[in-house]
Computed example of a mutant assay.
Amino acid sequence: MNTVVLGAGAVGCFFGGLLAEAGHSVTLIGRAVHVERIQAEGLRIETASGRRWVRDIAASTGLECLKGASLVLCCTKSAQIDEAAQFLGARLNAHVPVLSLQNGLTSAERLRKALPNNPVWPALVYAAVGMNEPGVVAHRGGQRLCLDARCRIEPFFNVLSDSAIECQLYADMEAMRWHKLLVNCALNALSAISQSTYGALLEVPALKTWLGELIRECVEVARACGIEVGATLEHDVLELMQAMAHQRSSTAQDLARGRPTEIDEFNGFLMQKGREHGVLTPINTTLYTLIKALETPSA
Rank of each mutant, 00 (worst) to 15 (best):
V4M: 11
V5R: 02
V5D: 00
V5G: 00
L6I: 11
G7L: 04
G12E: 08
F14R: 02
G16Q: 02
L18Q: 09
L18C: 12
L18K: 14
A22D: 06
G23V: 00
H24T: 10
H24C: 13
T27F: 02
T27K: 00
L28V: 01
L28I: 03
A32R: 12
V33C: 12
I38W: 04
A40K: 14
E41N: 13
I45T: 02
E46C: 15
A48G: 15
R52V: 05
V54I: 15
R55Q: 08
T61P: 04
T61F: 06
G62R: 11
L63E: 14
C65G: 10
L66V: 05
L66K: 03
L66E: 04
L66I: 08
K67C: 09
K67N: 03
V72C: 08
L73P: 02
T76D: 08
D82T: 11
L88K: 00
G89C: 03
A94M: 04
V96S: 01
P97A: 02
L99E: 04
N103V: 12
L105S: 03
R110K: 15
R112C: 11
R112K: 14
A114T: 01
A114H: 10
A114M: 03
P116L: 09
P119K: 13
V120F: 08
Y126A: 14
A128V: 13
N132I: 08
E133L: 08
P134D: 13
Q143G: 13
L145H: 13
L145G: 13
C146L: 15
C146D: 14
L147I: 03
L147P: 07
D148M: 09
R150L: 12
E154Y: 06
E154R: 06
F156T: 00
F156L: 13
F156P: 12
F157Y: 15
N158Y: 14
V159K: 07
L160C: 10
A164H: 06
I165S: 08
Y170A: 06
D172V: 03
D172P: 02
E174C: 10
W178Q: 03
W178P: 02
H179K: 04
K180A: 04
L181C: 00
L181Y: 05
C185H: 03
C185A: 06
L187W: 10
A189F: 01
I193S: 05
I193D: 07
Y198F: 15
G199Q: 04
L202K: 02
E203F: 01
V204A: 12
A206P: 01
A206V: 13
K208E: 08
G212S: 10
E213H: 14
I215C: 09
R216S: 11
C218M: 09
C218I: 02
C218H: 01
V219W: 00
A224K: 04
G226K: 02
V229G: 05
G230L: 02
T232N: 14
T232A: 12
H235Q: 15
D236E: 14
D236Q: 11
V237D: 00
Q242I: 05
A243M: 12
R248H: 03
S250H: 07
A252D: 00
Q253Y: 04
D254H: 06
L255T: 10
G258W: 12
I263R: 04
E265T: 07
E265H: 08
G268F: 08
L270A: 00
L270I: 15
L270V: 15
M271S: 11
Q272L: 13
G278N: 05
V279M: 11
T281H: 12
I283M: 08
T286Y: 13
L290K: 04
K292C: 00
E295L: 01
A299D: 12
